[in-house]
Amino acid sequence: MSNNKDARRDEHRPDVGLYVKVFAALMVLTMITVAISKFHLPRPQAIALGLFVAVIKASLVGALFMHLWGENKLIHRTLFIVAGGAAILILPLIDCVMISHRITSPADVASQHPHEGGHAATHEEK
């Protein structure tokens, strides 16, 4: 019985007007995402902008549709731990890939071994 009372206390009062506004915002943001990709921006800028819009969309869904805005602190703490775990999982791996990408890129090899590059150029000039 107590759990039933708990359930009643734990429910979120729906706000239909807000849901409609969020839906409209999500549609507009989807169109913006597609438009960004149509502009053929340089890839780093396109990725940064696209992910920025995706984060806004996900935040709207999470905060207002999933009622994370005003949710119990226990849920917030759980998600915080998960986000930390995901960061521990992802960030070092991405860092390793970026380091290996830098090490093996032609520009980096040339800057790390200027003598070899210069030597090659001398040969080519000859």
């Binding site: 107590s2 009372k5 708990d6 734990d10 119990n72 226990l74 849920i75």
Partner: peptide
Amino acid sequence: PDTHSGVT
């Protein structure tokens, strides 16, 4: 009875 956390 309740979970003492306010979450079902």
